[in-house]
């Protein structure tokens, strides 16, 4: 696969340099991106993190009303323990820090170890894991599910709660409820490749689609000949609505997200059908999002995330926020 880069080993660092050069509200310290302004005293901090290769996730969501800092790893590899610790310290405004990130083994270990290191300095931390990918485990094992695009709803909702002055327990509970109310499913049409790797992350026929594939090429539910956008959208919506969800509501927000190479045109073709199906099921759509929110570099495909909204979550979703890739 062709990539515009200088060297595989420099890929992440040069990307981060460019990100902060283009967005002066962000600052970089090694493998941490944080708000250039110091942590706001008296505000609960929110940190996230994960592997590179998913922009705008994770670092692109550092901003007012969203994340305070973010630890970032190599492409598709977790952030180091040191980076996690640095991010927590950068986000600390004296009222504790929520660690809000996807449910991946390496990320969990690193953020856990980092949490123990900052305990020495009396920085209180809590954890909420993104577990929205319904294809990654059955409903009975929903705690094993991996975190994908739906986590940005948790960023926004928990970020607004922290911005409003809530304490750590309230921000944590709000983030957990947002995760519990959110479901995502993805489809993949073509793979991506890690810089420096010899081959793409998976192989798929030129005329094939895989339902339920994860953002790192984790196997999904089925693979078959490519179908029409409407057929694909119908099945994705059906699967999302069939999955049991805590905090179900008739008001939802929906995110139709490109995995990288799939253009906005195709996203809108799918959104048109998704909106029709949700409405048919008696759901009212609030603040829909269509675009590149959580990607896997040049992977083609898309994901659909659905979050059920109560009045509180809806208000938090509407609260002002600003980061390089999302402004409310």
């Amino acid at each position: 696969m062709k990539k515009l880069m200088n060297a595989p080993d420099a890929f992440v660092d040069e990307m981060l340099d460019g990100l902060v050069a283009a967005h002066p509200a962000l600052a970089r310290e090694a493998r941490v991106i944080r708000l250039a302004a110091p942590a706001r005293k008296g505000k609960v901090g929110i940190v996230s993190g994960g592997g590179s290769g998913h922009l705008p996730l994770f670092t692109g969501y550092v901003g007012r009303g969203l994340l305070d800092a973010c630890a970032i790893g190599d492409v598709f590899a977790g952030p180091s323990v040191d980076a996690c610790e640095q991010a927590i310290r950068a986000a600390d405004g004296g009222r504790g820090v929520l660690r809000l990130y996807g449910n991946y083994g390496g990320d969990r270990m690193n953020f856990d170890l980092a949490g123990e290191m900052v305990e020495i300095d009396d920085i209180e931390t809590t954890t909420v894991l993104g577990t929205d990918d319904i294809a990654s485990a059955a409903p009975a094992e929903s705690g094993k599910r991996r975190g994908v695009a739906g986590i940005i709803y948790a960023y926004k909702i928990a970020g607004a709660k922290a911005d409003a002055g809530a304490d750590l327990a309230e921000v944590t509970a709000t983030a957990q409820a947002a995760v519990d109310a959110c479901r995502t499913i993805g489809v993949a049409l073509s793979p991506c490749q890690i810089p420096g790797a010899a081959a793409p992350t998976f192989a798929i026929g030129a005329d094939e689609i895989e339902m339920g594939m994860g953002i790192h090429g984790e196997p999904g539910i089925w693979r078959d000949k490519l179908r029409s956008a409407d057929d694909v959208a119908d099945e994705m919506v059906k699967r999302l609505l069939a999955d049991p969800v805590k905090h179900a509501s008739d008001r939802v927000s929906v995110l139709v997200n490109s995995l990288g190479a799939t253009p906005l045109e195709e996203l809108f073709i799918v959104y048109r059908r998704v909106a029709r199906q949700l409405t048919k099921n008696g759901l009212t759509i609030v603040r829909p999002l269509v675009g590149h929110y959580v990607t896997s570099m040049e992977m083609a495909g898309l994901s659909i995330s659905l979050i059920h909204l109560d009045a509180a979550r809806e208000a938090l979703l509407a609260a002002p926020a600003e980061c390089p890739f999302w402004r409310v």
Partner: peptide, 15 residues
């Protein structure tokens, strides 16, 4: 290790 890796296997080496 803690400074240079974040992969799950790498962090197990740290541990």
């Amino acid at each position: 290790c803690a400074a240079s890796t974040g992969s799950s296997l790498g962090t197990l080496v740290t541990v």
